[in-house]
Design a protein around this nucleic acid. Structure first.
Lengths: 181, 181, 181, 181
DNA sequence: TTTT
DNA sequence: TTTT
């Protein structure tokens, strides 16, 4: 829990796809999302308007992953606070590759749904039928890979001696997907 | 310059090596540094103290790159504020690879040297002979490695005409100022 | 523009009232908003749900103030990045008082409208009639105090030698309003 | 613990005075420090260099307050991450006054000592005799000013049972670690 | 792949 | 005074 140094990422952007939820053998949820941030500026040579979108891999763990799986959808706007983490893996040729992600886990991060009336009524963001933002209806976290009930680790954040960052050595994570990174 | 979304990284850590400085055809400086942040925690199973160091690639552009090249050294402690940026490149086998960096450029970021009484004396961080932290003596930004344009110009947000970040040349703070409360 | 030290505030919250816009003699706009952030938790003694709202004074300057005046309304959700600033003033009894605000000015800060389809279509956040979030229709910045045309300082941020922080010594700012601070 | 909204302050600056430590009836420590951040710029009218220092009230709670009391001294450079909080009080004339502070408490904030090789040797920041930065010798947190409960307990988010922030007792970083890229 |  |  101690730390020398600061490692903090803050993002506000929109999801490029629905979250992908997986469960670790321990039952803890992992949600992977991609978040777009973009900036636009006027090219000072050509004078034309230009835009550049940056895509961020974000991995959420535990309770916040469950919330993401239930309420976030493609297009949802989110505030993300997490840490940068680079992990090494082997591609199909046995070559070492590195992937950098924003990790949101326990007290080292947070996720906030933005826009719409998130977190509304009966535990669903919209509180009703009419969709205001791009939020999902609360779902059974069912359409997932493997699925032992995520053993409600609702408040693990207070746990006195939590073990950070042991992620990513459990599910394979399919990094050969055709996602652009 | 407009932007929808927020893309912000904040790091406090130490350099793993001396900065590598290059110059673009335009004359603009680029500094590459690696910054370590670490956290330690007590393993709740074994009870032993564990530590994990995360290494961050950071690319600085323009004036702030020159300052980095002059004053930062292996071990220097820095505050970095920048943006996440992932760029695509081809490895020797023609395979697409991705590298994620923290980009510090113009008004989208800042770098602050920490420790010692930076901003001291004659434009060098320490103000004197005795080395307090791990800061370099001001150098000619001459010993540049090589000089091909870096494969990436990072975000073109404010291009050549930028001129921020000439910090580090102010008098030391007087801590006997009357604090207004 | 240089700085020793970091002074940064990040808020995501909702406006408690419509923005108040004023113009300085120089023509620069100033927008004052109050932003609510809240947290809720379960009281570990009584077991009941509790909530606490924190109200923040935010002062925006220049272009971002104009945008705030045009598009933000009571209830609007915003992302604010600015600096902490405490200024001294005299109350009606001649007593020294201090007020702390989050100042958003030039490159030292940013404001992003959240939720809805902000910044949409023709320069208005919603792009149409149907109100999705709590955003104002684009207005003439007319109903303001004094009103020499704000001399479009649209890109003063690039200005080579801008003069920071001289605010608050121009308009009186009416700090005896019945706002709770 | 839940929250709608983000309320975050990040400071890097120097202490204007030694910390003031107090203990609450519960035994929890409270440290009050004032942190200076400053910026300087060239006045675009007169052409002269100008500087402005901003002073921040910071209140630390719990373990981090104890660390502050032991190791921080006037002039110490710190990284602070906390929340903005405004509290109401009555002055000697019975008038309502407001004071805004940066509150560092539990998981909602952190404090890092900067400069020197903090986290070194035997649990003290410098690891030895020779003072590199402006750090105090570890003290008994005994010389407390006075001992009435501070008028404010700040947000009760995680109350007594908190236990984060026991940093600063790790071995120094080895910068010859193999950087993974 | 998002959003505007 | 907001929002949920």
């Amino acid at each position: 829990m101690a730390s020398r140094g600061v490692n903090k990422v803050i993002l506000v952007g929109n999801l490029g796809n629905d979250p992908e939820i997986r469960y670790m053998p321990s039952g803890g949820a992992v949600a992977n999302i991609t978040v777009a941030t973009s900036e636009s500026w006027r090219d000072k040579n050509t004078g034309e308007q230009r835009e550049k979108t940056e895509w961020h891999r974000v991995a959420l763990f535990g309770k916040v992953a469950e919330v993401a799986g239930e309420y976030l959808r493609k297009g949802s706007q989110v505030y993300i606070e997490g840490q940068l983490q680079t992990r090494k893996w082997q591609d199909q040729n046995g070559q070492e590759r590195y992937t950098t992600e924003v990790v949101v886990q326990g007290f080292n991060g947070t996720m906030q749904m933005l826009g719409g009336r998130q977190g509304g009524g009966q535990g669903m963001p919209m509180g009703g039928q009419q969709q205001q933002g791009n939020w999902g209806q609360p779902q059974q976290p069912a359409a997932q890979q493997n699925n032992f009930a995520p053993q409600q680790q609702a408040a693990p954040q207070q746990a006195p001696a939590q073990q950070p960052q042991q992620q990513y050595n459990e599910p394979p994570m399919d990094f050969d997907d055709d996602i652009p990174f």
